[in-house]
Design a protein around this nucleic acid. Structure first.
Length: 242
DNA sequence: ACATGTTTAAGGCTTC
DNA sequence: GAAGCCTTAAACATGT
């Protein structure tokens, strides 16, 4: 007996919650993160039931994305402009489903307030960083700004970030981006790598691009967790018929 | 204008 | 029955 495929639900409503469907879509993507439109597409491609009444279920799905702590909105990378942010699963939410089965959640994933606050602060800082990056690219290169002390831009995690972490990161990233520097991929991993050693003290080189440490740490952790997931973690949609 | 995102509210269903 | 989960609706804000 062939194993039923997801498509075999036909016009029947699949037994997955919106949380499960969204997690499925996110997990199925190479980077383990998708924009909203791609999540919609994943669902309508595989489950014909959701090709109808799109307004209704898409509203529900958006509600779930915003309401549930297990979903994390990641600002778009500056080199990937477009509408909306990317959505991913919180690294600590990967074991939310019983035995990896998407049919049933083990428990609701809820972040502690402090964790939630610091996560929001970091993501806001990342968004600010991206905005600053775009602004810098869009404008004519101004003369290099005076360099601040490095310690200012590696603030520790936690409440010390107050009063305005996003604002601070904005200012920081604006002043931290030198006018010219060797090109590198815009990934946190690449950005975190130290610049190649300088061969000589002349000509004067711009300082390296520094990502605020708390932003980089979160993003690196997120990516590491996502990359650790294997696609086969996705369970089959139905138990094989005996 | 439209897509995206947030929030509140309410009702049904399941589990303990 | 209470609590938690899920779905749906709706209003509103924000971004492209």
């Amino acid at each position: 007996m062939p194993r039923p495929s997801r498509e075999s639900y036909g016009d029947q409503k699949p037994p997955y919650s919106y949380i499960s469907l969204t997690a499925m879509a996110i997990w199925s993507s190479p980077e383990r993160m998708l924009p909203l439109s791609e999540i919609y597409r994943f669902i309508t491609d595989r489950f014909p039931y959701y090709r109808r009444n799109t307004q209704r279920w898409q509203n529900s799905l958006r509600h779930n994305l915003s309401f549930n702590d297990c979903f994390v909105k990641v600002p778009r990378r500056p080199d990937r402009p477009g509408k909306g942010a990317y959505w991913t699963l919180h690294p600590q939410a990967f074991d939310m489903f019983e035995n990896g089965s998407l049919l049933r959640r083990r428990k609701r994933f809820k972040l502690m307030k402090d964790d939630k606050d610091s996560l929001h602060a970091e993501l806001a800082a990342l968004a600010s960083f991206n905005r600053a990056f775009l602004a810098r690219q869009a404008s004519a290169p101004p003369p290099p700004p005076p360099m601040p002390t490095a310690s200012l831009y590696s603030p520790p995690l936690g409440p010390q970030l107050s009063p305005e972490p996003a604002e601070m990161a904005d200012t920081a990233s604006m002043t931290m981006l030198p006018r010219e520097r060797p090109r590198r991929a815009f990934t946190i991993e690449a950005l975190l790598q130290p610049d190649a050693p300088r061969l000589s003290p002349s000509p004067p080189q711009p300082p390296p691009l520094l990502v605020p440490a708390y932003v980089a740490r979160y993003h690196a952790e997120l990516l590491a967790a996502a990359h650790a997931l294997r696609p086969c973690y996705l369970p089959p949609p139905l138990l094989p018929v005996a």
